[in-house]
């Protein structure tokens, strides 16, 4: 399991999941995460951009620039490498979920 899964692995996983469906820009991503998670994930919205830029540097995302209403906007898309990264994170996450679930069950039997 990657050591960073609990630090920024969750926002990264959510972003990659959304970007696997379609090309999106930052604000759109944040709004979608917030809507779909019923505001469970309340990390500082601006903090997702440094993660997006790192993923671009790692070639896991590709970026396209556009100008909308006079403002510069970047649209992100998942690359082949990003799809691999998403699979890894999905596997790690389901392992964590299974681990926590089985841990809870064990405790339930003990009491």
């Amino acid at each position: 399991m990657p050591r960073d899964l609990f630090i920024d692995g969750v926002p990264e996983l959510l972003m990659l999941r959304l970007l696997a469906r379609k090309e999106m820009y930052g604000y759109e991503l944040v709004s979608e995460i917030s809507k779909r998670s019923n505001n469970v994930f309340t990390f500082g919205e601006g903090c997702i951009y440094p993660i997006l830029h790192r993923l671009v540097r790692q070639k896991e995302l590709s970026v396209r620039k556009d100008t909308v209403s006079g403002r510069s906007r970047r649209y992100y898309k998942l690359t082949k490498l990003g799809t691999k990264r998403l699979t890894t994170l999905e596997t790690s996450w389901s392992n964590v979920s299974r681990g926590v679930e089985s841990f809870g069950k064990e405790l339930g039997h003990a009491t």
Partner: peptide
């Protein structure tokens, strides 16, 4: 990053 935060 500043461009992105501005847009956000």
């Amino acid at each position: 990053l500043i461009e992105e935060w501005k847009d956000h």
